[in-house]
Simulated scan of single mutants.
Amino acid sequence: MSGSSLLVVDWITSGRHESGEKWDFILYKSTNHIYMETKPLFLDTVFFLFL
């Protein structure tokens, strides 16, 4: 729509690091697909493999 706005935040943080919390995994995947009706506007995938 004309005059519309969209803000997307896919925030990655380890939690409350100052409290000693740490992530304990080896794989992270986040996918965002944003469509207007049937037309793709934004397709994004973040993939981390921690070795």
Rank of each mutant, 00 (worst) to 15 (best):
F47C: 07
T38G: 08
S2P: 02
P40D: 07
P40C: 06
V8Y: 06
D44R: 03
G20C: 02
V46W: 02
L51N: 13
P40S: 04
W23Q: 06
K29S: 14
D24R: 06
S5P: 01
F47S: 06
L6R: 07
K29L: 09
R16E: 02
W11F: 07
L7S: 13
T13N: 15
H17C: 08
I12L: 03
L51W: 05
E18L: 01
G20I: 03
T31P: 01
S14V: 02
G20K: 07
S5T: 15
Y35S: 09
M1I: 14
G3H: 13
M1R: 13
D24Y: 07
T13G: 12
L41T: 02
S19A: 12
F25I: 04
W11Q: 09
K39F: 15
F42G: 10
F42N: 13
I12K: 00
L51D: 15
S30R: 05
I34Q: 08
S14K: 04
F47K: 11
W11D: 13
E21K: 08
F42A: 15
H17A: 14
T13V: 07
T13P: 04
G20Y: 03
V8F: 07
P40N: 03
F47T: 10
D24S: 07
L41V: 12
I34R: 02
S14Y: 03
G3Q: 11
S19D: 11
S14P: 05
T31M: 06
S30F: 00
Y35I: 05
L7V: 14
S2F: 11
K22C: 03
L51P: 13
E37M: 07
L43W: 11
W11C: 04
H33T: 11
M36R: 11
G3V: 13
L43T: 15
F48V: 00
T38S: 09
H17W: 10
F25S: 06
E18Q: 02
T31S: 08
F42L: 15
E21C: 06
L27T: 12
E21D: 11
T45I: 14
K39C: 14
T45A: 11
S4G: 11
W23F: 01
F25C: 09
I34H: 06
Y28T: 06
D24Q: 06
Y28P: 08
S4I: 04
E18F: 01
M1V: 15
W23I: 00
T38C: 10
I12P: 01
T13Q: 10
R16Q: 05
G15F: 00
I26W: 00
E37G: 06
F25Q: 09
F50L: 14
F48Q: 04
D10M: 01
S4H: 09
D44G: 07
G3K: 14
L51H: 11
G3Y: 12
F25D: 05
S2E: 12
L49N: 12
D44K: 04
E37Q: 05
I34K: 02
G15V: 00
L43M: 13
I34C: 14
T13Y: 09
Y35T: 10
V9H: 00
L43G: 14
S4E: 11
G15L: 00
L43C: 15
F42P: 11
F48Y: 08
V8H: 04
S19R: 12
I12W: 00
L51F: 07
W23E: 06
T13S: 09
F47N: 11
L6C: 02
I34E: 12
V46S: 09
T45H: 05
S2H: 13
L27G: 10
